[in-house]
Design a protein around this nucleic acid. Structure first.
Length: 443
RNA sequence: GUGGCUGUAGCUCAGUGGUAGAGCGUCAGGUCGUGGCCCUGAAGGCGCCGGUUCGACUCCGGCCAGUCACCCCA
């Protein structure tokens, strides 16, 4: 039998990496809860037509079906694995609107699936950490300013490279394009979005081809896209372009608020960047993208935006704003660069050495006493020579080895990194706080 | 999903139309019955399948995986 091989796009980490992932997840979750977001998990599947609704075209959705599909099952019954957490959440809000209180803020940390072609930082199964705030009928714009602060806190204190959140507002672009006289702002947006990749000349050509722009309009679109500022000064530069439209003013005001709020609470975190157009097509206002500094070429590790029409049924409307951290991408990139490591390969903090097999019960009692005080402990697998037992610990990164005392003697514990060995009592000894759990460190 | 590039031991890499090596790592033993250095030894491999050939790891094709671009996006 040949060795099994990986499945493309479905990453599996080894325990040290999984320990880091859990550390990161815990940290993110704590931060989300610190801001009052409530936990939620939704099922893995949604009706296929719901998943395809707003993207219409080639959303790479994985379809779920039974092997023994019945005769009566039609396409309308088909289920698909969700490809983000926002669409399922919108559905959940509509389904449970009567049981929720608004504004409702929740976080969701779950796997999502997309049938794309994998490459570094791009997977078919990956973990997202998502927050959203929805309200009934109207959603005040201050929430759009709060979202980046949460992310800044969640990611800012992890041992990862600093991040920069690029913010734009689709109303600015659409208002600008309309004020310019363009009738297909969507097409213009798509063209401008390629600026980084294909350069201004080709974008201009694309604008004229696909968005019906003339020379001057294309040039104006490019001038807008080139505007970027860490503060509200972008607004003057936009107005200086001389285009007016009510939607443009609205967008500028909203964007100013986001940038100014961020500048006060987290200087350097956010930058208004008027070329950012991306995200799913359901975004209607503010949009966010996040780069890890030094890893820009791998794309956004956290993005989202405001959506006014995603959750609506009949007269009920629940506008929302949210953002999603691509945990798997974030980690995959850093693992690939060797820029994130754990201090040990197992959770164990103490290995209890075993002098002889006859004394195993005694060693088990030591381990139980330590565990009882929250210290991760295991007992050596066999009564090998102490040198081997120490090596057992060393290879796993276990920092402490506990030596049961000889007849009449007390126990000792050794920090195998420093070699220091001291008398210890299992009822009272504790490792330094920093050694209680595996430490996660950046490069 | 389309196209390009890549695929030799756990890792980083040599190498050849006549079935293969190094360093590091792993395991065992020795020195020390409390490790790391050192010494000795061992295990372990040409991604998979097929074709060409007397013979393929080496050439060709398909598949799988990785990566890059497109697409899309975390």
């Amino acid at each position: 039998m040949t060795r099994p091989t990986p499945i493309s796009g479905f990453p599996e980490w080894l325990p040290p990496q999984r320990m880091i992932e859990q550390y990161v997840i815990d940290h993110i979750r704590r931060t989300f809860e610190l801001y009052g977001f409530a936990p939620l998990e939704t099922r893995a599947v949604e009706p296929l037509d719901q998943l395809l609704r707003k993207g219409e075209t080639s959303k790479e959705v994985y379809v779920l079906r039974r092997l023994q599909a019945g005769e009566g099952e039609t396409d309308e019954d088909a289920l698909g694995l969700h490809f983000d957490l926002t669409v399922p959440f919108a559905r959940f809000v509509l389904e449970n609107a009567g049981k929720l209180t608004f504004p409702f803020r929740r976080y969701q940390i779950q796997k999502v699936w997309r049938g794309e072609r994998p490459q570094e930082g791009r997977y078919r199964e990956f973990l997202q950490a998502d927050i959203d705030i929805v309200d009934r009928d109207t959603l005040p714009p201050h929430y759009e300013a709060e979202i980046p602060l949460v992310i800044g806190d969640a990611l800012g204190s992890l041992p990862i490279p600093p991040i920069r959140i690029q913010v734009n507002n689709r109303k600015v672009c659409e208002g600008f394009y309309r004020g310019l006289g363009l009738t297909d702002p969507e097409a213009a947006l798509r063209a401008v979005d390629k600026l980084d990749k294909i350069g201004p000349e080709k974008v201009a050509a694309l604008l004229m081809e696909t968005a019906g722009a003339d020379d001057q309009q294309a040039a104006a679109c490019l001038r807008l896209a080139e505007i970027s500022a860490p503060d509200a000064s972008f607004a003057d530069r936009v107005r200086a372009l001389g285009v007016t439209h009510p939607l443009l003013d609205e967008g500028i005001d909203e964007l100013v608020r986001v940038v100014e709020t961020a500048a006060e609470h987290a200087p350097g975190l956010c930058v208004a960047d008027l070329r950012i157009a991306r995200g799913l097509d359901y975004y209607t206002g503010t949009v966010y993208e996040t780069q890890m500094i030094g890893y820009e070429r791998f794309g956004s590790i956290c993005s989202g935006g405001r959506y006014d029409n995603l959750a609506s049924a009949g007269n009920d409307r629940f506008p929302g704003v949210g953002i999603s951290i691509g945990v798997t991408r974030l980690l995959g990139l850093l693992f690939g660069a060797g820029a994130l490591t754990a201090s040990r390969a197992v959770p164990t903090a103490v290995l209890v050495a075993l002098p002889t097999e006859e004394r195993r019960a005694e060693c088990d009692r030591v381990a139980a006493a330590l565990r009882g005080r929250g210290i991760a402990t295991e007992v050596a697998p066999s009564a090998a020579k102490y040198g081997k037992q120490i090596r057992f610990a060393e290879r796993r990164g276990i920092p402490f080895v506990w030596f049961p005392g000889a007849e009449g003697g007390g126990d000792t514990v050794k920090d195998i990194r420093s070699g220091d060995q001291v008398d210890a009592d299992a009822a009272t000894w504790s490792p330094p706080a920093g050694d209680l759990r595996a430490a996660v460190a950046g490069a």
